[in-house]
Computed example of a mutant assay.
Amino acid sequence: MINKERAAAFANGTAKKNVVLLHKNFLAKVLETLGEEASAKFSAHVQVEVGNGAKRDTPIYRFPKREATLMAMSYSAAISAAVYDRMTELEQQVVVVSAMPNFSNPAEAARAWALV
């Protein structure tokens, strides 16, 4: 999202150059924005394929809604709004899924099928 916004600003002349945000730059921005202690709570690693089946351990952050929004706000209001809206949409989907009956329970499954 950030790179798309930057490219659009460059294309329409509102930015003098298109600076592409790299993963390493984002990791540094997390420390700058949230601080070392707070960011450590959300630190994680994933395996990323680098070719020929080889994998590399890559540092990432897994943010809850608040911290994701704070990071987005550190770049722009438009991105912040988009991140917040998307996370709210995903939260609503989780609520719907958790309201589904437990079909492994015969009594609950029967009640659910009776309501159809």
Rank of each mutant, 00 (worst) to 15 (best):
A112H: 10
T14M: 11
R56Q: 15
F10S: 03
L34S: 01
R62V: 11
A82T: 10
N102T: 07
M71N: 00
F42S: 05
Y75V: 08
V116E: 14
E91Y: 13
F63I: 03
N25H: 15
A78P: 03
V20M: 12
V46N: 12
R6L: 08
Q92R: 15
N18A: 13
Q93L: 10
V20S: 10
K24Y: 08
E49H: 00
L34M: 11
L21E: 12
M71F: 01
M87Y: 07
D57E: 15
E67M: 01
Y84L: 09
A40N: 10
Y75S: 06
I2M: 03
M73G: 14
A109E: 12
Y84N: 09
H23Q: 03
L115G: 09
E49W: 00
Q47T: 03
K55V: 04
A110D: 10
S104N: 09
E108Y: 02
L70A: 11
A9F: 04
A112T: 07
W113R: 12
A77M: 09
R111L: 14
A77S: 11
L22I: 08
Q93D: 08
L31R: 15
F63P: 04
A28W: 05
A68C: 07
A77C: 05
T69W: 02
V30S: 00
G53F: 00
A72R: 05
S98M: 13
A114I: 02
A8P: 06
F42I: 01
K29F: 01
I60H: 13
A9S: 08
F10D: 01
P106K: 03
A99N: 11
L21P: 06
L34D: 00
N3S: 09
R62F: 04
N102E: 11
V97N: 13
R6P: 04
Y75G: 02
V116D: 12
P59I: 02
A82H: 06
F42C: 03
S104K: 07
A9M: 10
S43Q: 14
I2S: 02
V116S: 14
R111S: 09
T88N: 09
A40C: 07
E49A: 01
V46F: 11
A44Q: 13
T58K: 14
E36S: 08
E89W: 12
M71G: 01
I60D: 06
M71A: 01
A44V: 06
A11T: 11
K16E: 14
A107E: 13
D85H: 03
R62Y: 05
V50D: 00
K24P: 00
D85T: 05
T69K: 08
T88C: 04
L27I: 10
N25F: 12
R66V: 08
A72W: 07
I79L: 15
E49R: 00
A28I: 07
V20E: 14
R86D: 04
H23C: 04
V96W: 13
R6C: 06
A110P: 05
A9I: 02
S74P: 06
D57V: 12
R6H: 10
F42G: 00
V94C: 15
K55S: 01
V95C: 03
V20D: 09
T69D: 04
A8F: 11
S80M: 15
A11E: 14
E91H: 09
A8C: 09
F63D: 06
K4C: 07
F10V: 05
F103E: 15
E89K: 14
R6I: 04
V95Y: 06
V30P: 00
E67K: 00
A81W: 08
F103S: 09
S98T: 12
